[in-house]
Computed example of a mutant assay.
Amino acid sequence: MCNDYRLMVELASVIDEFEHLKIKIRFPEGRPNIEAREDIKITDIAPIVRSAEGARQGGELVQRRWSWPSPTKRPVYNFRSEGRDFTSNRCLIIADGFYEFTTPRDTKKKGKDKWLFRKIGDPIFAIAGIWRETHDVGRAFTMLTMEPGPDIAPYHDRQIVILDRSGWADWLDPSVSATSLIRPLPRGSLSVEQIG
């Protein structure tokens, strides 16, 4: 399951993508300095866009920790979406790629094969997430997961929820049913490249 993703796109380009969708971005904690990163890993701080109170077509870009500790202290970095209709604390996790790892085809290789997935035709995409306030780490986010779509199924038996661009504003609106937005992308939506 996804435990590593990337964001190599500059903040200005991210804002442009949201403006193109008529979603106004606010910076309640100041405009962050977001560096391009090939690897954003569990417990790292990363940008998310969360709902802006009272703004249907708006969101707040903040930086938060990826994962919160479970009661057993293991990080909750992925969260099953099935059977739940998330009505609060939704967020969009901005990425331009994510990684999956598989058993190596070369039996002599140490470690797993690393695969980079990107959304074809889009410089960035949004992963459906939720955030939570915790006593241990403060506000943190996690990625929602679902059954794999056709592009992911050959590599993993679960996948993160990648929202269609037309659903970004709806995900930020808690009055819109989350279950109506969670569905796999059509076959051929993602490119895949072995990078390790």
Rank of each mutant, 00 (worst) to 15 (best):
residue 70 S to M: 07
residue 70 S to H: 08
residue 70 S to Q: 07
residue 72 T to M: 12
residue 72 T to F: 08
residue 72 T to D: 15
residue 72 T to L: 12
residue 73 K to G: 01
residue 73 K to E: 10
residue 77 Y to P: 03
residue 78 N to Q: 10
residue 78 N to R: 10
residue 79 F to G: 04
residue 79 F to S: 14
residue 80 R to E: 06
residue 83 G to L: 08
residue 84 R to S: 06
residue 84 R to L: 11
residue 86 F to I: 02
residue 87 T to I: 05
residue 89 N to T: 13
residue 90 R to G: 03
residue 92 L to C: 11
residue 94 I to Y: 07
residue 95 A to K: 04
residue 95 A to G: 02
residue 96 D to N: 15
residue 96 D to Y: 02
residue 97 G to T: 12
residue 98 F to Q: 01
residue 100 E to Q: 13
residue 100 E to D: 05
residue 101 F to A: 01
residue 101 F to T: 10
residue 101 F to D: 01
residue 102 T to H: 00
residue 103 T to V: 06
residue 103 T to G: 01
residue 103 T to A: 12
residue 103 T to K: 15
residue 104 P to K: 03
residue 105 R to Q: 13
residue 105 R to E: 13
residue 106 D to K: 05
residue 106 D to E: 11
residue 106 D to Y: 06
residue 107 T to G: 02
residue 107 T to S: 14
residue 108 K to P: 07
residue 108 K to G: 15
residue 109 K to P: 03
residue 110 K to F: 10
residue 110 K to P: 09
residue 111 G to Q: 12
residue 111 G to V: 15
residue 111 G to K: 10
residue 111 G to W: 11
residue 111 G to F: 14
residue 116 L to A: 05
residue 116 L to C: 11
residue 117 F to H: 08
residue 118 R to T: 15
residue 119 K to M: 14
residue 119 K to I: 03
residue 120 I to R: 15
residue 121 G to M: 08
residue 122 D to K: 11
residue 123 P to D: 09
residue 124 I to T: 15
residue 126 A to F: 00
residue 127 I to N: 01
residue 128 A to E: 09
residue 128 A to V: 04
residue 130 I to K: 09
residue 131 W to Y: 14
residue 135 H to A: 14
residue 135 H to P: 07
residue 138 G to Y: 10
residue 139 R to W: 03
residue 140 A to E: 06
residue 142 T to E: 03
residue 143 M to S: 06
residue 143 M to C: 11
residue 144 L to N: 11
residue 144 L to H: 10
residue 144 L to I: 00
residue 146 M to A: 03
residue 146 M to C: 04
residue 148 P to H: 13
residue 149 G to E: 09
residue 150 P to H: 02
residue 151 D to R: 06
residue 152 I to E: 03
residue 152 I to F: 05
residue 153 A to E: 10
residue 153 A to F: 00
residue 153 A to N: 04
residue 154 P to M: 13
residue 154 P to N: 11
residue 155 Y to K: 04
residue 155 Y to Q: 03
residue 157 D to N: 15
residue 159 Q to C: 13
residue 159 Q to F: 05
residue 160 I to Y: 00
residue 160 I to C: 14
residue 161 V to M: 06
residue 162 I to F: 02
residue 162 I to A: 01
residue 162 I to D: 00
residue 164 D to I: 01
residue 165 R to C: 06
residue 165 R to M: 06
residue 166 S to A: 14
residue 168 W to Q: 01
residue 168 W to V: 03
residue 170 D to M: 04
residue 173 D to G: 05
residue 174 P to T: 04
residue 174 P to D: 11
residue 178 A to T: 05
residue 178 A to V: 06
residue 180 S to H: 08
residue 181 L to P: 07
residue 182 I to Q: 07
residue 182 I to K: 02
residue 187 R to F: 00
residue 187 R to C: 01
residue 189 S to F: 03
residue 190 L to S: 02
residue 190 L to T: 08
residue 190 L to C: 02
residue 190 L to F: 10
residue 192 V to D: 09
